[in-house]
Design a protein around this nucleic acid. Structure first.
Length: 695
DNA sequence: CCTGCATGGCTTTTT
DNA sequence: GCCATGCAGG
């Protein structure tokens, strides 16, 4: 049972002396009082308020922390980690689970600042990335070969599409049937909620009631395909992890003995699988779940804030801590935000929190009405200039938030025109760029030749090769390889295989195959970055030169990818991170350290705070989104609006254009968001910026 | 079977 | 005003 992570906790200067193994027990005991001199002494009492202090220093055991927005939830969590360390708990005994990569990074960074303990000494990260680690260690116990690869959302969807096409020829031809995307969502949601597909459809997708019976076989076939190709989709990382824990007592024992303390951030956003995973590992009940039902914004992915309510049933003797003092926002912003929740049709009384403002007064939120997108962007830019130049606000303390990516389009253009540097956590991500995905697929195929999606991607780059030819080539190569007991890549150049290669592709074929072999060779002997380097310099390099006019720029990015790869020691880890870190934004920025304002979706802004926040597109149809309105369920959108508003510390601007220029049929008139209309007008000011002269 | 053109349909949010 | 899918040609 060797883990590549084991060494990390044992040989660093901060490690306390080894402790005798302690029996797992329901913890009524206090912490073992082993002095921890390496971690700097922290005055917990002075650094925290009463509520936070109580939670941070609570006896080990099930803890539920109900923490409102801006009440210092992350602070509580990070200090809890520091407190555990100060009591002699080793970093390797702490498991820290979050939802987004950003949150994980932020948390571990803060712990590092506080205690000096390096982030990589904890097991901390998203459920998915920790699931991947678990599968990497124990996947073979449930029949998952160790070189499995991970499909991103597009690839998974396309595999499902191919599966369904193969199972039932005309399914997608019939327009009344769900398309691959929605179909994937149905299956995914059923897996994440652990509900049978029939129940899932009844509950969440009644429009598919009539064809519900068709879907379970598709799900089964899809699962089979994934196994054949030795690939996992995102949901597998959670489901297989759970299955592993349920099927193998020794694995469960390993995790629960190893992670004597479990902390879960944003517990309101756990879905059934995630909650079950936590419960399985936390047989010792030393688990701290931190959450706020008002900020549950992932229910479309199966998140169920009822998990908070049932936590105490699943972990008897739960101590509940409420943290209700808000240090972040001015009372004006907080009043406004509280009213958003007041308008909720049904509130859970037992979860309700009353946020108290701790700060002095500031300005009321400003509702900004402009003609169109363009004026909206102009307003934001002019206001930012003013804030930065005259009020001395740092650009990095300013954020522009929106419900969905497309709302930010005009904003991006305007910022570029104005020469104002910005970070954007949306749009086409670095790892989603074509050439990046190509080269990753190239390497991924070498690593796992059963991965047909990776194969299709690279094979289709050859002239005259499309999906069908790619499939045929792969099939014949697979057969041949099995027959000859040889590597799949080694048989690609045999005549049998070549008969399936279209004429137009034969010119490229030898160098294509040679490059694959070279990469395979490198992968066996050298660190992963070398294999990437080899791939870039081989056949793909030639292809790139011919296929793209901006060849130089793209090559530059591929070199950056090689640089990224050099941070990883194993191919498995590297390839997984590329899929899972689906974040690393393609900042159009030259200097990454330059002070830049931030553009992000509300989802990605969760947990973060800024001096000044602009929410753009606060109009019905945008926020709440059109879809949510049509489905008659805007409650999640309301929580999202609450999350957006509570990101602001000093100033909050809610902007909307009166005319929709781009979206919809065009020229449509927009109403202010219903969430604005629900709020007493005395709680905000209305601002109508003068029309800008255009010459 | 692949590729190019035209029409229709449409837009969450993240791992 | 965009992208993806559908149809005709090679």
């Amino acid at each position: 049972m060797d883990s590549p992570f084991d060494s990390e906790e044992t040989d660093t200067p901060f490690s306390p002396p080894p402790q005798p193994a302690q029996p797992v027990r329901l913890s009524t005991s206090t912490f073992s009082a082993i002095p921890q001199s390496a971690v700097p002494a922290i005055d917990f009492r002075a650094s925290l308020n009463d509520e936070q202090y109580a939670a941070v220093t609570a006896e080990p055991g099930p803890l539920l922390v109900l923490a409102g927005a801006g009440s210092g939830k992350t602070r509580t969590l990070t200090y809890r980690v520091a407190y555990l360390l100060s009591k002699g708990v080793r970093p390797g005994e702490i498991l820290l689970l979050t939802f987004t990569n950003k949150a994980a990074k932020e948390m571990l960074h803060r712990v590092n600042d506080l205690t000096g303990v390096e982030p990589n000494r904890f097991w901390g990260g998203t459920f998915h990335s920790i699931g991947h680690r678990a599968l990497r260690m124990f996947g073979e116990d449930i029949g998952l070969p160790k070189n499995f690869t991970i499909l991103d959302a597009d690839e998974a969807e396309s595999l499902l599409k191919q599966t369904v096409d193969a199972e039932s020829k005309g399914f997608f031809k019939d327009k009344t049937n769900p398309k691959p995307g929605p179909l994937f969502n149905v299956i995914s949601l059923s897996r994440n909620t652990q509900l049978p597909i029939g129940d899932t459809i009844e509950k969440y997708f009644p429009q598919y009631k009539d064809i519900a019976y068709l879907i379970p076989p598709f799900a089964v076939a899809y699962e089979k395909k994934k196994r054949e190709q030795n690939v996992c989709d995102y949901d597998d990382l959670l489901e297989y992890w759970l299955r592993l824990l349920q099927k193998s007592p020794s694995v469960t024992q390993y995790f629960s003995e190893r992670f004597r303390h479990i902390l879960v951030d944003e517990y309101q956003d756990t879905n059934t699988v995630q909650a079950q995973i936590v419960d399985c590992i936390a047989t010792h009940h030393r688990v701290m779940a931190v959450g706020d039902d008002a900020q549950c914004i992932y229910s479309w992915r199966g998140a169920d804030f009822e998990n908070i309510a049932t936590f105490m049933d699943r972990h008897p003797g739960t101590a509940i801590h409420r943290i209700e003092t808000n240090y972040r926002s001015t009372p004006e912003i907080l009043n406004f935000a509280n009213r958003i929740l007041d308008a909720q049709p049904h509130r859970r009384a037992e979860l309700a929190k009353e946020l108290r403002a701790a700060r002095g007064h500031g300005m009321r939120p400003q509702v900004v009405q402009t003609m169109d997108d363009r004026e909206q962007a102009d307003f934001v830019i002019r206001r930012i200039r003013c804030l930065v130049d005259e009020d001395g606000v740092s650009p990095s303390e300013i954020a522009v938030l929106y419900r969905s990516h497309f709302v930010a389009m005009e904003m991006q253009l305007a910022l570029s025109r104005a020469g104002m540097p910005y970070h954007i956590t949306s749009g086409v991500k670095f790892f989603e760029r074509q050439h990046i995905k190509d080269i990753v697929a190239f390497v991924r195929f070498v690593y796992n030749p059963a991965d047909e999606l990776a194969w299709q991607r690279i094979a289709c780059l050859l002239p005259k090769v499309g999906e069908k030819s790619a499939q045929k080539i792969h099939a014949v190569a697979r057969e041949h390889a099995a027959l000859m007991r040889q590597d799949l890549i080694a048989v690609l150049e045999t005549d049998d295989v070549k008969t399936k290669v279209p004429k137009g592709a034969l010119d490229d074929w030898p160098s294509f195959c040679a490059s694959l072999s070279e990469v395979a060779e490198t992968m066996r002997a050298a660190p992963p970055a070398k294999a990437f380097d080899m791939a870039v310099n081989g056949w793909y390099g030639d292809y790139l030169r011919g296929a793209f006019a901006d060849y130089i720029d793209r090559l530059e990015e591929l070199k950056a990818l090689v640089g990224f790869a050099s941070r990883y020691e194993t191919m498995q880890d590297l390839l997984a991170q590329i899929v899972l870190l689906n974040g690393e934004t393609s900042d159009r920025q030259v200097d990454p350290d330059a002070e830049a304002i931030k553009l992000t979706t509300v989802h990605q802004a969760k947990g973060l705070e800024y001096d000044v926040v602009f929410v753009i597109g606060v109009a019905d149809g945008y926020f709440p989104g059109r879809r949510a309105i049509e489905d008659g369920d805007v409650e999640e959108e309301r929580r999202l609006f609450y999350v957006a508003s509570t990101r602001a510390k000093n100033e909050l601007y809610l902007c909307y254009p009166k005319v929709a220029t781009r979206a919809g049929p065009g020229g449509m008139l927009l109403e202010p968001s219903r969430f604005l209309k629900e709020i007493d007008a005395s709680l905000y000011d209305i601002l109508k910026p003068p029309r800008r002269s255009y010459w």
